[in-house]
Design a protein around this nucleic acid. Structure first.
Lengths: 328, 328
DNA sequence: TAGATCATTGCGCACGTGTGCATTTTTTTG
DNA sequence: CAAAAAAATGCACACGTGCGCAATGATCTA
């Protein structure tokens, strides 16, 4: 009571029972008589006792901690993902140990190392690019690893990802239907695997349709980069369509087109994004985009966490096109 | 090696030393000879050993865990806050245990209870409304509590908050300078303490200037609520100014004004927001708003976490007006 | 070289909990 | 009411680590 937390020992003493009795009182399904249970609960309440989960995890070897690591946590799409995931974890009685990797490439590995030290039961990587070697380490230590929207070329870890190439296809088909003559593919300079998949799938599809394509990629994955892309690319008056591999990029591009470069959207230029972040639906934008199902993505992660033997290592979540007003 | 993690015991055996030697090798400043240290490190690397921080925390009583609890984690302002905070924590060697309170009022208390069970060293409340009683519990258990943008009427806990009334004043003065005749105050239905402070301070200042005020508040703190507010309020043609207590609300209001209610901004209606979220600076909006200094807010939280005896219980962070294009 | 100082090492306890095992108490059965 | 079955209870060990304490070995001083 003096300082720090109350221990089961103290509760036992006050209730006049053994420490085991206290432990059993708080262990569902253990064998305790009604009278003892009452006395223990009474004493526990008076002293403000709470089980020490760390000590609990020490001999259980169930820490109940799930490591979540990611970059760019305030980007709309990722923050929404984190929001849903953290709620889902809590519902299942799991705790979320959040590690923010400031630098996508260099920081991930040491952070996962750190999660090992905390004996995380499983690790979810939301963004950033983990080296393939950590998969082996996870397996060696019996830690389940779940990669979201990432694709490593191995079959011994869980991956949940949106159908990027299908999404890029949808975007391409839509721009083809809009009779675009020359289109741009805009991505960031970070070149994450997902962005690359989208860009290449789109390029391929559009090229086989005989449409001219120009690629742009620079800067972080942000509104500002998209804006810059718009300013750069639309000097070319022949460009009449654009696929931005991320909604943030698309919204920046859209603003550049309308405000800086005086284009009408969709009459002069058609634009398609990817993700369907909330801002894409705002009235000033009404962006036509490829929607990832955030709930499906999250549900799959939670399932992969829950099941003892993962049924499917690779979960591809379907995407869909949201028709709004930025394509002719 | 068979399953689970490697223990210091196993490393000791392989290196041919005592377990203490292993412990000391990984304890900075402990006394170990070069030769032993080398042998231990070698064995540790071969076996893939990592210290068990949970066990470490058990006798240190330093868990190194910081509980972070909040609502509405995907809202731009809060997600940015979380982003900065999680980076700052990591820099200081602290871990972030994230708890997402789905329901602002009911969930906070049990979540903090949970954090006690994990022996969190400190608890940061980013949003939501913790009952005053938990302050006592934190003190009783020696857990530091830090409330962000919240104000409890007590002096025995740490609070870091933006200068809401000053911000509201700035907004009011600006709208007065724009010669508004009738202004609206828009807030959400959740009526968080911060929102209430802003709304009342604004109302008071504007009323003493003899300007007519109408209040609106409903729904969650979202773009959509702001949009709804705009549609409702602007039926009244006499309203020529609005203060939205949150940028999200302001952006919705702005879109409603321009697109749905055919008002010119700022010629017909002047709008001021609060927070300065990234979207406020986007070219389609260029919202004039009151900026909270996110970095100052976060820094103060980190300082409050770090210092042993908190110098100031109540930290008020200054705000500033960002002049953009939505006020005449 | 003998004595003194200092670095290194191992033993054992402590942290707070869950649980197997043997023992005691209660309940059920015939 | 006696015997058997069942429930309740306490003891002691295990989980993995840090650290105080005493003992050992190495280095330095005169």
């Amino acid at each position: 009571m003096a300082r720090g937390f109350v221990t089961a020992e103290e509760v036992a003493k006050r209730a006049g029972v053994s420490r085991s009795a206290v432990s059993r009182t708080f262990t569902p399904g253990a064998s305790v008589s009604q009278s003892v249970r009452r006395k223990v609960l009474q004493a526990a309440r008076e002293l403000g006792y709470r089980v020490n989960r760390l000590a609990q995890g020490l001999n259980n070897d169930r820490s109940n901690l799930i490591g979540v690591v990611g970059t760019n946590l305030s980007a709309p799409f990722i923050s929404k993902q984190l929001d849903l995931l953290s709620i889902g974890l809590l519902r299942r009685g799991l705790q979320c140990l959040l590690l923010n990797a400031a630098d996508a490439r260099k920081d991930i590995a040491p952070l996962i190392e750190l999660l090992f030290e905390f004996r995380a039961q499983a690790i979810v990587v939301l963004s950033g690019e983990p080296p393939s070697s950590i998969v082996d380490e996870c397996i060696a230590n019996g830690v389940r690893l779940i990669l979201v929207n990432q694709r490593l070329d191995r079959t011994d870890t869980n991956m949940v990802l949106s159908d990027d190439s299908r999404g890029a296809d949808l975007a391409a088909l839509r721009l083809i239907a809009a009779k675009c003559k020359k289109v741009a593919v805009v991505s960031s300079g970070s070149q994450t695997p997902a962005q690359v998949r989208r860009a290449t799938a789109f390029t391929q599809r559009v090229q086989t349709a005989g449409i001219e394509v120009v690629a742009w990629s620079d800067g972080p994955t942000s509104y500002e980069s998209g804006y810059q892309a718009g300013c750069d690319l639309l000097r070319d008056k022949r460009i009449d369509g654009a696929f931005c591999v991320t909604d943030l990029l698309a919204l920046g591009f859209l603003d550049a087109a309308r405000i800086e470069m005086h284009r009408r959207v969709p009459q002069d230029v058609s634009i398609v994004g990817f993700d369907d972040i909330p801002q894409a639906g705002w009235k000033s934008y009404e962006l036509t985009t490829i929607a990832q199902s955030l709930s499906a993505l999250t549900d799959n992660v939670l399932v992969a966490l829950g099941s003892d033997e993962p049924a499917t290592r690779l979960q591809v979540v379907p995407v869909s096109m949201i028709e709004r007003k930025t394509v002719r």
